[in-house]
Amino acid sequence: MADELDLLRAADPAPAAGPHFGDGPLDHTAERHLARLLHEPRPVRRTRPRLAWGLVATVAVVATALTLLLGGSAGTPALAAPRPLTVRAHSVPVPLADVAELAAVAARDGSPALRQGTHVQSWSLGMSDDKPPVTLPEERVVRWRADGSHTELVVATDPGRPGRPVLTDEGDTPRLVEDGHVLSRRTYPPMWGDAPPLATPPHDPAKLRTYLTELNYTDTLSTPELLDAAAELLDNWTLGARESAALAELFAKAGGLRPVGEVTDRLGRTGQAYVCDDGSGQRRMLILDPATGTVLGMEAVLTRADPDYGVKAGAVMQYSVWMR
């Protein structure tokens, strides 16, 4: 306000030192000051402390991240949120029984072999009561050593947007980080155990089913529970040919998994898709390599909206792809 008063005084056509009640035109100085007052931006005083500006910047980054993620007001698709996988038009569905037979043939030479550890890329939808849902992509690599110790590396990355900033909730606050940003890097001391998932998974289908039942902490193993247990197994072990064949046989005998055709996963690999409804409002999809029975990925998609969390039907709740 003081700045504006100074300008007004400087633009006064009848200053106290001049002729009273003057009726003539403004002099050059008064015209210049009046033009500044009418046409130049209002001066801004930077009186907020630096910390407050830092908080404003943080909020702006989070708002930008959520806008990129959730889409703009025009309904632009969310950049970080993957769309559900779609079945390739006119592709021929391959029955699970056929995949199990092919996998058994491929496993006769026992190659590749089972390996402890995993390499998995995942997208998961985080929801809360007071924040918009956000999709968080990350990659995890676990490698075991001969002495029983192992390392775990987790990075924020999205293969669908290479080199682009990635949204993460590191520190419980959504924020953008550089592609490949290390979220955690840990080394664990030697560990051994005779219970899943530390115990070596068997390649006999009946024994593998028992193993997965124990891993899932259940007495029975429904098809959705089988999918959950298989995902947990793959988050700890990279299956060999014989273990993949045994798991394919379990999928074939489980029932409820409908073959729907060929899909391309989020790493560009081609596989056969099998879907089931889990009874809780989610459609589960299993993607297999039809020649070897290897699990390429799994996807869970909401079949009905959840307005309490601001999630629409068709949202990808969870998606994982496993690599060797």
Rank of each mutant, 00 (worst) to 15 (best):
R304A: 15
R42I: 10
V321S: 10
L286N: 08
P189N: 00
D289K: 06
L183W: 03
L51P: 09
S91Y: 08
L226T: 01
T135H: 09
S222A: 00
D289E: 13
S73F: 14
P84H: 06
V321C: 08
T187H: 12
D278C: 02
R269K: 10
A78F: 04
D179R: 05
S320P: 01
A74S: 14
T64W: 12
A97I: 08
A57L: 12
R324D: 14
T135Y: 03
D169K: 12
D6F: 13
P41F: 04
A315N: 00
V92S: 14
D308A: 15
T64G: 12
P197K: 05
A254V: 03
V56Y: 12
V99H: 05
D27N: 15
P174R: 01
Y319R: 12
M298H: 11
P190E: 03
L233W: 00
V87A: 07
D158I: 04
G54M: 11
V44G: 09
E152H: 10
G22M: 11
P205Q: 01
T238S: 06
L176N: 00
D277M: 00
V260D: 13
T157K: 10
G297R: 04
D235Y: 09
L34W: 11
G240W: 01
G24C: 03
L66W: 03
G293H: 03
T264L: 11
S111L: 11
V275T: 15
D109M: 05
H90I: 06
P137G: 10
S222I: 00
S124Y: 07
D306L: 08
P15A: 02
D98V: 13
G193V: 09
R108K: 10
W144F: 15
A80I: 07
A273T: 05
P197S: 04
T64Y: 09
L212S: 02
A17K: 12
P13V: 05
E101Y: 07
E299H: 02
L34K: 05
V166A: 05
T173L: 15
D109I: 04
G148Y: 06
L257Q: 08
D235Q: 14
A231I: 02
P190M: 02
P189G: 00
N216R: 09
D23G: 13
G256L: 07
M298S: 15
L302F: 12
G24M: 04
A199S: 10
R115Y: 08
A252P: 02
A195D: 12
A2R: 13
L37C: 07
V154H: 03
R164C: 09
L247Q: 00
L215H: 04
R140W: 09
P196V: 03
E139C: 05
A81N: 02
V154F: 02
P13K: 05
V56D: 15
L136W: 08
A14Q: 14
D219Y: 11
P162Y: 08
R88T: 15
P15N: 03
W322I: 04
P202C: 07
D6L: 13
L212D: 00
